[in-house]
Every structure is written in structure tokens, then in C-alpha cells.
């Protein structure tokens, strides 16, 4: 199970690095979404994978021998929520860049740092 997850994470990271290195902002954002999911999966696997052992038990029952680790799930949930906010902002920002700079190619975005130095 862990091996399967490790391969999945590896593929996600590889794809996202490829996307982020392409000279286009929208692809960069897609790459960022992918790699953040890879990070979330990493946290999830780091909490150990347990099959069919929910951590909830009836009142009065003893703690089970094997239970799913609830903490990584809480962490991943937090990270997803935060990531959602950040990506919403990033996508709007890229849209603004498109409307006000007429470009989504980072190499062409030289407004804040003009190419020729002022003398």
C-alpha cells in the first residue's frame, strides 16, 4: 500500500515539476495544485496506512489494537482548506496579470524589473 502511494506521489511531483518549469503561468498554477496534493498525500502516508480501522469506538469500549491515525487526517484537512484559499487567490492574481499585463509568460513580465538599467 505504501509503495503504491509512494509511486503516486512521485508521479504527481514529476508531473508538477514539469508543469511548473514550463514558461506559462497557468501551467505553473496547475503544477502547484498537483504538488500540494502530493504534499498532502505525503502527510497522509507518514501517519501510517491502516485499512478499515476507524478511530471511533462506542462509549465505554476499550481502545482497539489498531486504529487509524486521526492526526494526519486533521493536518491534511487543514492544509487542503488553506491551500484552497491560496490557490483561489493565485488564480485570481494570474487572471489580473492577464488582463493588466496582457501576458502569462513570466519572461515577458518585466514591469517591476525593467530589463535595461536606468542611468
Amino acid at each position: 500500500m505504501e509503495v503504491l502511494f509512494a509511486i503516486t506521489i512521485g508521479v504527481l511531483v514529476a508531473a508538477s515539476v514539469y508543469l511548473m518549469l514550463s514558461n506559462h503561468l497557468l501551467r505553473f498554477i496547475f503544477g502547484l495544485v498537483l504538488i500540494s496534493n502530493a504534499a498532502n498525500l505525503t502527510i497522509f502516508v507518514a501517519g501510517r496506512l491502516t485499512d478499515g480501522a476507524p478511530p471511533l469506538i462506542p462509549v465505554g469500549a476499550d481502545a482497539p489494537e489498531i486504529a487509524a491515525n486521526a492526526l494526519p487526517q486533521a493536518l491534511v484537512l487543514t492544509a487542503i482548506v488553506i491551500g484552497f484559499g491560496l490557490f483561489a487567490f493565485a488564480i485570481v492574481l494570474v487572471f489580473r496579470a492577464w488582463t493588466s499585463l496582457n501576458s502569462l509568460t513570466p519572461d515577458e513580465m518585466r514591469l517591476a524589473e525593467p530589463e535595461e538599467a536606468h542611468k
Binding site: 511548473m20 503561468l25 505553473f28 502547484l32 504538488i35 500540494s36 502530493a38 504534499a39 498532502n40 505525503t42 502527510i43 497522509f44 502516508v45 507518514a46 494526519p72 493536518l75 492544509a79 491560496l86 487567490f89 493565485a90 492574481l93 494570474v94 489580473r96 496579470a97 493588466s100 499585463l101 513570466p106 513580465m109 518585466r110 514591469l111 517591476a112
Partner: peptide, 24 residues
């Protein structure tokens, strides 16, 4: 907007690095 794109992009990458580090 131009400066913002670069700031946001690189800081988000660093954030994901941080998160991965925490997970490991």
C-alpha cells in the same frame, strides 16, 4: 501585479516544501 505574481509563486513553492517537511 507583476511583482505579486513572482512573490506569490515562489512563496507557495516554499510553503509546500515546508508542509512536506512537516509530514516526513
Amino acid at each position: 501585479i507583476d511583482g505579486g505574481v513572482k512573490y506569490v509563486a515562489l512563496n507557495l513553492v516554499s510553503t509546500i516544501m515546508f508542509l512536506t517537511g512537516i509530514g516526513l
